[in-house]
Design a protein around this nucleic acid. Structure first.
Lengths: 338, 338
DNA sequence: CTCTTTAGGACAGGAACTGGCATCAAGGGG
DNA sequence: CCCCTTGATGCCAGTTCCTGTCCTAAAGAG
């Protein structure tokens, strides 16, 4: 007789109200609209209790909009804070892939947040999902690739980020700018994304001083498992510390060109992120900024039309070398190079 | 006297155990390692209760690894399912941007999942965060842009996805392939990502039949707010239905080239997703597949070295046109085009 | 071995959860 | 305008289960 019959009061297993609150949250996130009776059915409680649970959610700060009358129900609405997100397997994988892409294209300061979120998810993600992520990553990478940036392995990024978050000592191999390799043992402090690169600010236990390391020159990170206490960084902040040691952030390229094609066509081929102005003679003026001449070249090439460069001059030079190489490539038959 | 002093039993507001379970989950997600006493402190309960709460989490299926002895504590471990994710504001923004990118580069079937997750997050995201997402999107777009695909507005994608999920009628403007514009009222059924395009499978209420719509030709979607019941789709599934109406999926381009540069250099410039084989004479062979000739061209250009194309022939042709246009561009002075 | 920290049983008081019932309010449809 | 459906709220009684205290075990670290 596994099911004890109770006249009233709480029933079945344990952690009831907690578990039910989470399940309710999860249900409200999958569908927009839920009838009270349906929720009661799913949660195995009376309608009255469902209403109380909904009230509980509201008290927790997650607004639930009611809808009365026939075909009424509840729906989760935007509140002051984001409720705990309940995602299924596929969504989790998509989420991680998206965050990886976001972490590796440090555009507008979301890179750090991407890595933080990534750390959270990776930590608790079932292993089977990690495998799926690994399998898909190689495929996805292409779409998120940004030409000439020194790229960091996703695994490295996550491992270092977690070590920072958890204040765990970190060992790794480092290849300095002068190609000298060394083994390091550090107390990782913060991860900073500057320009197109990732930097680790850490206290180097061997050198007994603060250092910053470029993540793309860092290999085989492994945590020793030992945690360490806080230590004061001399500079004003991690980002300032890195910037003091670098002082050169890649300067963006301001592209300005005239395209021999109508505005609409250029826009459809180039995307919405460039500014495109119409000109009187059916051509248009294309302006955008990027950090890479390669990217600028691709954009101009993708317009599929003739164009003229107003600036910058180095782009013109870059185009010339590409044109020369392409021309040579079209004249070579087979694999005979050199 | 706002704080009632109680000798025993539960205290303060309401929804205690639920709220505490969520807060515990949130704490365990931010740091890897938490001492029991610290948790007790944060949650304002006794140590014994914290242990019981941890037990509750374990019963809910979220393994919490203990660590005994000095400097012991708890940490959330990967379990069978992903626990509800508690993310802060910045992480939420990063998450949405990542998912948007994932939804718009339909690589390996994660596109649908990205859109689903996106729907969940958007629905409950505080408005101030939505504004931040909107502000950042234009900046981010560049990095996730894939050359010549018909691009779909993020807002459109989300709106249609939500209408599908919630079974709500949808009105929109549609521009067919023959440029004829029309107003549609449909019952949206599913969103399918095929090749590089998004398709909406829906029952057209005006035409009284099932149709599939390309999302990039769809504008100003708006839900009427009225829900509808399930309706049987004639074909085997949404994807099959779309495929039946299309039948041409963009064929991938298999690129095979020889580069006049050493393997290491090519790899560092091109990325890890292409296969690069060493050749005897210091050159290397580069192979990869992509759906876009433009992309292939960029990749070859980014190697920064001379190269020869083994195939496909259309790539050679494509290179020639680019080279010609680039050459012309370098010969034009100023904005005088045509 | 000792110290620290988690694990978990027993216990008692009391808070809080549950279902049922009644009343009110709000939409939708005829 | 009336009726029906569905959510909002208050109250009650029964009982469950949550909480802090006390205590004993067990497991790592030094």
């Amino acid at each position: 007789m596994p099911v004890p019959v109770l006249k009233s009061g709480r029933l079945d297993v344990m952690g009831n109200t907690s578990s039910r609150t989470l399940r309710l949250l999860s249900l409200l996130q999958t569908h927009r609209h839920w009838a009270g009776s349906e929720l009661a059915d799913r949660l195995n409680v009376s309608l009255r209790t469902v209403r109380r649970d909904i009230d509980r959610l509201r008290d927790l700060g997650y607004p639930v909009d009611p809808q009365r009358g026939i075909d009424g129900g509840y729906q989760l609405a935007p509140g002051a804070t984001l409720p705990p997100l309940v995602v299924d397997d596929e969504e989790a994988v998509a989420l991680v892939l998206g965050l990886l892409a976001g972490a590796q294209s440090p555009v507008a300061g979301t890179a750090e947040a991407s890595v933080r979120a990534l750390g959270k998810v990776i930590q608790v993600m079932p292993k089977r999902l990690r495998r799926r992520v690994d399998a898909l990553r190689s495929t996805t990478e292409q779409a998120t690739w940004v030409p000439p940036a020194a790229s960091v392995e996703g695994d490295t990024l996550i491992a270092v980020a977690q070590a920072c978050r958890d204040s765990e000592r970190l060992d790794f191999d480092y290849t300095a700018a002068d190609h000298v390799r060394s083994q390091r043992r550090v107390e990782p402090h913060r991860l900073v994304s500057l320009g197109r690169n990732w930097y680790l600010v850490a206290y180097d236990l061997t050198r007994q001083d603060w250092r910053s390391f470029r993540l793309d020159r860092l290999a085989a990170p492994r945590t020793t498992g030992t945690r360490f206490g806080p230590r004061d960084l001399p500079a004003d902040g991690a980002a300032a510390f890195v910037r003091a040691g670098i002082a050169k952030i890649p300067r963006p390229v301001q592209v300005d060109a005239v395209i021999a094609a109508p505005v609409d066509e250029v826009r459809s081929r180039v995307g919405r992120w460039a500014s495109i102005d119409e000109r009187a003679d059916g051509t248009c003026r294309l302006q955008f900024s990027t950090e890479s001449l390669d990217w600028a070249t691709l954009t101009l090439g993708a317009t599929g039309a003739d164009f003229a460069i107003q600036g910058p001059p180095e782009l013109l030079e870059h185009l010339r070398t590409w044109a020369d190489r392409f021309t040579r490539a079209t004249k070579i038959r087979g694999a005979r190079l050199k």
